[in-house]
Amino acid sequence: MRSSAADRTRPTPLDGLVVLAVLAAAAAIFYFFRPVSGNFLTARIVLDNELVAELPLSDLTEPVTLEVPGVRYPITVEGENGRVRVLHSDCPSQDCVHTGWVSRSGGQIVCLPNRLVITVTGGAAEADAVTG
């Protein structure tokens, strides 16, 4: 017999502690990784440190695509209600495409070859109009 646990047939108080620990871990993970519930998510598209476009993600009712002007490798950004992604890019690394959808405030998509950064910001009431 290797362990006293093998002999017990009923849960012990310490089992309850295990349950509590697991549930506490679940709650902590949910808290830290929860999507920031901003009603005003905005995707800021910054090229060479210059803001070239802003997409008010929370106001979008249907998907919109945007060809970013003035980039080295043609890149298409797709935004829909609450999230944004790089739909297509001609850049060699394709990291921006592989990042996929970003839907949380603070999330980023970076296209290094294009020196393009898409940042999702939100929470505050900055639901401005689209700028091109």
Partner: peptide
């Protein structure tokens, strides 16, 4: 590891294992 902790039953061990 948990099987070496006294005072646990297999309920706790299996729940921790599943987690």
């Amino acid at each position: 590891l948990l099987l070496r902790v006294p005072g646990l039953s297999l309920f706790g061990v299996c729940i921790a294992g599943a987690a």
